[in-house]
């Protein structure tokens, strides 16, 4: 992309749709399959209009059979296709956990490297829309526990537009987690935006005082917090992990070695979480560089409540990030 490349106003939803459409045009082996992806237009309207353009073979509505259609995606990938399987929310993906964990993640290794599974599974994750405890959880950290799959969390328009194609070109199964509050996010994106690499974290805001490490739906809140901190003289660096498995440990450590302070912000629960993993890696790789213990800001350990004030209290917020960093800087500023 050239610096003066033409830009367009676009939403995250539209960027994702462009990515799917682009993949369908580029490769005849690609098809989209899931609940209400066709006639309904996608439960979050991501695939709106694609059925009319590509027809029911390639925009394939499925019955409410998560395990069967996710497994069918795996089988189709083993048999030469490049399926994109959509699951409505991460909570529903638990109905397909057998296929994802016992098949998609294992078959390459279990077959001694003979059989690849070039499959992409997309799903919505996260809270913030008052959808309560069966539509709001952030379980991507769980999936990041599993060797054999890759876990992506696009948090920007460019990543929504660009990660899918790279994921489809990957010979291994890739899970893409789209935070539900991002679909309406609007901004400017280069008209020629395309594939992006999916193995590196990105520094979204450079800073020198503290590393705020996050991904997905909490990136916006973290940047907001960093701006507020800047107003009070604290220069925070914001690291967007982008990929939760494999974790880009190098970029995390690189940032922490410069700032000597780290806060991990994760919408998942704290116990046994990806935030715990990141904290452990910082401890293993940069312990003597730290001025302070690593801090974590996670969701409260409770199933997500419905009432707005309770949901907000359960989630990481910009104000919590600001308060935590201010406290950290207070002692060692």
């Amino acid at each position: 992309m050239s610096p003066d490349a033409q830009k367009v106003k676009i939403t995250y939803r539209e960027a994702m749709r462009q990515a799917i459409r682009d993949a369908l045009i580029r490769d005849q082996r690609v098809f989209l399959m899931g609940e209400d992806v066709g006639a309904y237009g996608g439960c979050y309207a991501v695939s709106k209009g694609l059925l009319e353009e590509f027809g029911p073979d390639r925009i394939r509505d499925t019955p409410l059979s998560e395990s069967a259609f996710v497994g069918a995606g795996i089988g189709a990938a083993m048999n030469g296709m490049r399926p994109i399987v959509e699951i409505m929310t991460v909570n529903f993906s638990l109905l397909a956990l057998d296929q994802i964990v016992n098949n998609a993640a294992t078959i390459l290794h279990m077959s001694g490297g003979q059989i690849n599974i070039p499959l992409v599974i997309r799903m919505t994750t996260g809270a913030g829309r008052q959808l309560a405890a069966q539509h709001s959880h952030s379980l991507e950290g769980w999936y990041a526990h599993i060797p054999g799959i890759k876990v992506l969390a696009p948090a920007t328009l460019e990543d929504a537009r660009g990660m899918l194609w790279t994921a489809l070109e990957d010979p291994d199964p890739v899970l893409i987690f789209e935070h539900g509050t991002l679909y309406n996010m609007e901004g400017e994106m280069a008209v020629d935006a395309g594939a992006v690499e999916i193995s590196k974290a990105a520094v979204r805001r450079a800073g020198t005082d503290v590393s705020l490490i996050t991904y997905g739906g909490t990136l916006g809140k973290t940047i907001q917090a960093a701006e507020q901190l800047a107003a009070s003289g604290v220069d925070a660096e914001v690291v967007d992990l982008r990929t939760l498995r494999p974790l880009d440990t190098e970029s995390i450590l690189d940032s922490v070695m410069r700032t000597h302070r780290a806060v991990v912000i994760d919408e998942g629960w704290r116990s046994g979480s990806i935030s715990a993993e990141i904290s452990a890696r910082i401890m293993e790789g940069a312990f003597y560089e730290l001025d302070l213990p690593v801090e974590r800001i996670c969701s409260a350990e409770v199933p997500m409540p419905y009432a707005r004030h309770l949901e907000e209290a359960a989630l990481p917020q910009a104000s919590t990030i600001v308060a935590t960093v201010t406290r950290m800087m207070g002692g060692h500023g």
């Binding site: 069918a72 089988g75 189709a76 083993m78 016992n102 098949n103």
Partner: peptide, 25 residues
Amino acid sequence: FYGGNAIVGGGLPLAIGFALADKLQ
């Protein structure tokens, strides 16, 4: 020969996917 699948019933979705790919192609 695609397994050798040791989760009872777990091979069925794979077979559905194999057949779907053949039908689409």
